[in-house]
Simulated scan of single mutants.
Amino acid sequence: MKKVIYIWLVKLVSRWKRVKDPQDIVYLMSFAGNEHLIKAFAELAKQLGRNFTVLYLPQCQAAATKLAAEGIQTVEFTDGFDFVFHKLQLVMQARLLLCDNYYAFLSGCAFDHQQTHVVQLWHANGAIKTFGWEELTTAQRSAADKRRFQKVYDQFDEYLVGSKKMAQVFAQSYHVPRTRMNVIGYPRTDELFDKNWQMQVSQNIKQKYPDIIGKEIILYTPTYRENSAGKPVMNLPEDFYQLVNQLSGNQRLIIKLHPHVKAAEKQLKQQLNSDKVIWVDDFSTNDLLLVADRLITDYSSVIFDYSLLPNAKQILFYCYDYDQYAQQVGIQADFKSWIPGKMVTTTADLINEVQQPLEATDFTQFNRLWNTANDGHATERVLQTELKYIQK
């Protein structure tokens, strides 16, 4: 009932705050990592004499602070009365609204879509986990909830994706027409093609962690998991430590966990106390991909980025809880048919794979499927595409 009242309030206030000729560009940020695109739109807005604002959720505070330091207007928000009465007006003044996620409040926004163009950018380059109507819990929700979900999905006039495959996933998961899909490229991947960025970040990591120089680097990045109460958990198999014991003298394991599992990380550090394990807090997962010879993950979208890098050699899928995860969270039905690496479900099998001589994987077919339009120039195309809506 609270959600219904809140959305009703959003609808009422959005009608009140809607302007006849909106001119602003607004970016809704729930994930960091797309700062390159944000800066590009900020510069475009400056050239056109338009206001540009980044409305960000609290978890993006660090990224927002850096953007603000470069003169970009940033405003923190969370759902609530303050947002509805003081910040929703920023959304309703948008000629172009860029979104990186599902935002529930959008179901109540009374946009005039002839005046406001709403774009879904998303926060991942591909999809392994199910979402939207394909998410397992959706079927159990009330009819009112389902109507509210679809209203959000229908608000997006355009979905920017890097492949026809991702377009298919969105159309199926959100029950929206394929005509709304624009296979234009995923802007966040542009950085992955930047040779200067590759060299600089790689050098910085090696300078900070010289022990990795000349070693075979294995990067382990498990996906974020929650328990039945919605709390973050880290439920690695009890025998995971054996992987560390079986590493060769030339191998180093970098473990990069999700920020929400800091408590579990502390305990894991005690269990995996070894010179062969390196814990890195001062570089992002994207940065660490640049020094990884082998990537071990499970259901993380990091694979779609790693496969584009020149240093990418092998991906291993350590899916020790595959059946449980598939039943409780949901995995794309064709996952096993297109993963660009071997899937293992036990630590013993993982150890066996890691002990094999490293052979480079050909990611060509995988990238044709998922990275079709990602070539380092997606941001340019997005700016050109959205310019016509800004100047409409």
Rank of each mutant, 00 (worst) to 15 (best):
residue 285 T to V: 15
residue 303 I to H: 03
residue 280 V to S: 08
residue 341 G to A: 08
residue 337 S to A: 14
residue 275 D to F: 05
residue 297 T to S: 12
residue 302 V to A: 09
residue 345 T to M: 11
residue 316 L to C: 05
residue 246 Q to R: 14
residue 279 W to A: 10
residue 282 D to F: 10
residue 358 L to T: 04
residue 334 D to P: 01
residue 360 A to H: 02
residue 323 D to H: 12
residue 335 F to D: 02
residue 255 I to D: 04
residue 365 Q to H: 04
residue 329 V to Y: 07
residue 355 Q to D: 05
residue 274 S to Y: 11
residue 285 T to W: 01
residue 344 V to R: 00
residue 330 G to I: 00
residue 288 L to T: 06
residue 283 F to P: 02
residue 269 K to M: 15
residue 290 L to A: 13
residue 341 G to Y: 06
residue 286 N to C: 06
residue 301 S to V: 05
residue 320 Y to M: 11
residue 287 D to R: 10
residue 249 G to P: 04
residue 364 T to K: 06
residue 271 Q to C: 11
residue 349 D to T: 00
residue 306 Y to R: 07
residue 348 A to M: 01
residue 299 Y to Q: 05
residue 262 K to F: 12
residue 319 C to W: 01
residue 293 D to S: 12
residue 287 D to E: 11
residue 359 E to I: 08
residue 321 D to P: 01
residue 294 R to K: 15
residue 320 Y to W: 13
residue 370 W to E: 00
residue 270 Q to C: 04
residue 357 P to K: 05
residue 296 I to T: 08
residue 317 F to M: 07
residue 350 L to M: 03
residue 312 A to V: 06
residue 329 V to S: 07
residue 330 G to A: 02
residue 285 T to Q: 13
residue 284 S to H: 10
residue 358 L to R: 03
residue 294 R to W: 07
residue 298 D to N: 02
residue 295 L to G: 02
residue 265 E to R: 14
residue 321 D to R: 05
residue 341 G to D: 06
residue 303 I to V: 15
residue 283 F to S: 09
residue 369 L to N: 00
residue 262 K to A: 15
residue 284 S to R: 13
residue 261 V to H: 07
residue 283 F to T: 11
residue 291 V to P: 04
residue 357 P to S: 05
residue 344 V to I: 08
residue 370 W to H: 12
residue 333 A to D: 14
residue 328 Q to A: 12
residue 366 F to W: 02
residue 249 G to K: 10
residue 303 I to W: 03
residue 272 L to S: 09
residue 252 R to H: 10
residue 325 Y to G: 02
residue 293 D to I: 05
residue 304 F to W: 07
residue 308 L to K: 04
residue 281 D to N: 15
residue 266 K to E: 14
residue 273 N to V: 06
residue 310 P to G: 10
residue 371 N to Q: 09
residue 262 K to S: 14
residue 366 F to Y: 09
residue 348 A to T: 13
residue 278 I to Y: 09
residue 274 S to W: 10
residue 291 V to K: 11
residue 361 T to W: 00
residue 270 Q to P: 02
residue 267 Q to T: 14
residue 253 L to V: 09
residue 359 E to P: 00
residue 315 I to L: 10
residue 329 V to E: 05
residue 352 N to D: 09
residue 318 Y to I: 01
residue 340 P to M: 09
residue 323 D to F: 05
residue 305 D to S: 09
residue 322 Y to H: 13
residue 359 E to N: 06
residue 349 D to C: 01
residue 292 A to V: 11
residue 307 S to Q: 08
residue 366 F to T: 00
residue 310 P to A: 10
residue 317 F to S: 01
residue 324 Q to V: 04
residue 252 R to K: 15
residue 337 S to W: 00
residue 315 I to Q: 01
residue 353 E to Y: 01
residue 348 A to Y: 03
residue 302 V to D: 05
residue 350 L to C: 00
residue 353 E to C: 12
residue 316 L to M: 11
residue 283 F to R: 10
residue 287 D to A: 14
residue 250 N to Y: 11
residue 257 L to T: 08
residue 355 Q to R: 11
